[in-house]
Design a protein around this nucleic acid. Sequence first.
DNA 1: CCAAAAGTGTTCTATGTACACCCATGC
DNA 2: GCATGGGTGTACATAGAACACTTTTGG
Lengths: 219, 219
Amino acid sequence: MCAITLADVEVRVVVFTLWENRLQVLLRPLDSTDHWSLPGLPASREHSLEETAAECVEALTGQNEIYLEQLYTYGEPDRQPDSQLISVAYFALLAASSLSSDRIEQAQAAWHPVDQMPELVWDHAEILTYALRRLRYKLEYSAVGFELLPDTFTLSELQHTYELILGEKLDKRNFRRRILEAGIIEPTSGRRSGEGRPAQLYQYRPDAVAEVKARRLFP
Amino acid sequence: MCAITLADVEVRVVVFTLWENRLQVLLRPLDSTDHWSLPGLPASREHSLEETAAECVEALTGQNEIYLEQLYTYGEPDRQPDSQLISVAYFALLAASSLSSDRIEQAQAAWHPVDQMPELVWDHAEILTYALRRLRYKLEYSAVGFELLPDTFTLSELQHTYELILGEKLDKRNFRRRILEAGIIEPTSGRRSGEGRPAQLYQYRPDAVAEVKARRLFP
DNA sequence: CCAAAAGTGTTCTATGTACACCCATGC
DNA sequence: GCATGGGTGTACATAGAACACTTTTGG
């Protein structure tokens, strides 16, 4: 019959990134087991839940301008024995270019491909599965894909990002048409040369990012 | 720097119903102000958050088989001075037939039409606005409308429900075709007679309800 | 000149939208 | 028999899906 207080509440974050051509998730080892857990921080009285989630990602990666969205709040008795009762789960998207791995190693954290997950503690596998579902679902209607890419990118890179996350091949012409008609990215003056014909570089329109945030499908 | 514990956490529920041909929300007066608040209960160590939300609705309405879905978790410093810091918000749909108003009166609670909201405390207006947005959004792709109706209903009643919530007129033939093709309701043997030609009564297919729950767009 | 990736339009299909009349009953 | 709400089909527009070749560069 004890009341529930903030010491019973934590924030957990599912951090996605693209690395070595795979969608990966940041995990931390749990002491005294060979299981891994989603990184988290206890909730605090001074900061909002979203600020705490951002802090958690920054502490591990050094990034503080990231895409962050609340997922769901888990609160069943005994879901995390010996840890907080209530987890407010977020998911985050991190641009691959910006993985300063020093802090990650210090925290003994590591990236794991989503298709080769190690054993996770408690209900964290469930949280991860849900985060992945939401990420895929969100890609289909809101074009958050570029949050995983550096500031400028080619349309092919963007398409490969989508294909990796959705796990299926997409038609090049249809993909380009849809993305460009949505008006969320614009060409820059740059080009990327490599093998083959050089590609136009694009960036997301800052005002489009503001529009998407203003829509707030989830507040 | 005090830690946050369960005493800082509550569940709030936005309970919708149809009554007198209007979409209404259940509110409770806040002592010592002329403002109203969303009904809620403190989180507990013995029950899941969803169970607590269900309990909260049952305590006021006597109903325990209702549609319930987690909305969002609000946790900003000072968002609810003199009350819990963190609110896990749910929304609930209640069949209009089942409004036993005794308990509601005992709790001094009352139904308020969504288009004539009184002043709400703290950020509860924001929570309500979001709940309404999610309800409308959800109607468009998942046919939860019948949760607001009694066990059997006519297609016209269902359409009126949709029109009330969405705030726009719908085409009768298109509405019927879409709902029937979705396969979530089936005709019963009953008919409703009143003025005009008697109407076929429908019920939702119990297995379809199970399917929808299995899909779990939000876990 | 050839390998390698970038870039570009059109046809077809499916889905959604607009729209008007007959039907069964109670009074 | 008439007023009242219940029930039905079709033509059109729009959005999405399938599909193959030319272009530009580096080696």
